[in-house]
């Protein structure tokens, strides 16, 4: 089983076979997290650096746990406490880290393209943990893993992604991944949140939640950022919730065995009503569990000596 890549920067460039390899490998890592001793020696002596320029508890903790469960040494660097505050450029930070010889650098950054810049500059493997509005490959992989585990397949499923599509890396990565695996994807949100020409990505576009989720197998709700209100992207959270909140009122439009997903953190009552978030359709917590397995799988597949 070979993943012939130095880096995981996005879903767009992955082939269907590569995605299957990652998902299958992730499946076998689930069991480790259920053991008494949640550790295997596989990455013993390897160093994984989590370089997070954007605040994140969920993703960073997930990567940290993934590394530690594989017995790797994981180091967390968050930009606010590092030399970045002193004005060090991304490139200099990367070169300094490279000189300390880690094996994998996981980077989250608010500027699209930052991981690509890094990957071209340092010899270590780079995993993109989210770059601006561009891609969040590990999120899409864990989302697909969750759907596959519940539905047994990804082909010919109808998936609706709802929310601020324009600013969402989760949306983009999932669109690439789900389409590659044969699913149908619809996006929905206020017109101001639909990016230009997105139909060219092969998705159907809706400006109403009810339209988008009719008879779907999976609903993926995205997080709304309050700051967008000040950019006149939407008038108020109240109005957004009235039009786009997933709740008991509209969930029945989807299939009876619909899956409700959210990358987190949830704005309860804005994107999803609390009873749906905690209810029987929700697989939000499975997503989190699968996230650790997917990240373990990637660390496992990317590391190793060169033959």
């Amino acid at each position: 089983m070979i993943l012939e890549r130095k880096d995981i920067l996005g879903i767009k460039e992955l082939s269907k076979d590569e995605i299957l390899l990652i998902l299958d490998t992730a499946d076998s890592f689930i069991e480790i997290s259920t053991r008494e001793i949640k550790k295997v020696p596989t990455l013993r002596g390897k160093t994984v650096i989590n370089l997070f320029y954007e605040a994140s508890t969920r993703t960073r903790t997930s990567f940290e746990i993934a590394g530690k469960r594989l017995s790797a040494d994981t180091i967390n660097i968050s930009a606010s406490t590092s030399s970045v505050v002193k004005g060090e450029t991304l490139l200099d930070t990367a070169r300094n880290l490279e000189a300390m010889n880690p094996d994998v650098i996981v980077i989250r950054h608010s500027a699209a393209g930052a991981p690509h810049m890094l990957a071209g500059m340092v010899r270590q493997s780079i995993i993109n943990a989210g770059d601006g509005a561009h891609e969040h490959p590990t999120q899409a992989l864990l989302d697909m893993m969750t759907i596959r585990a519940k539905k047994g397949r990804l082909e010919n499923l109808n998936v609706a992604i709802v929310g601020d599509i324009a600013h969402s890396r989760v949306a983009r990565s999932n669109i690439y991944g789900l389409k590659k695996m044969g699913a149908q994807v619809a996006v929905a949100g206020p017109a101001t949140m639909i990016p230009r020409d997105i139909e060219q990505m092969g998705v159907s576009v809706h400006s109403s939640l009810d339209e988008a989720i009719k008879e779907v197998d999976v609903i993926m709700m995205l997080r709304i950022q309050i700051e967008r209100q000040h950019q006149n992207i939407f008038p108020s959270l109240r109005e957004y919730a009235q039009r786009f909140c997933l709740s008991k009122k509209n969930i029945s439009l989807a299939k009876k065995d619909v899956l409700v997903m959210h990358p987190g953190p949830i704005n309860r009552g804005v994107e999803i009503s609390p009873d749906i978030a905690d209810g029987p359709y929700s697989v939000i917590l499975d997503q989190v569990t699968n996230g650790v397995a997917v990240r373990m799988a990637l660390l496992y597949l990317l590391t190793g000596g060169k033959a």
């Binding site: 699209a112 509005a133 561009h134 890396r169 230009r196 997105i198």
Partner: peptide, 12 residues
Amino acid sequence: EGFVATELGLPG
């Protein structure tokens, strides 16, 4: 601002 910007996730 166009399809390429949408794919790259860059503001247009």
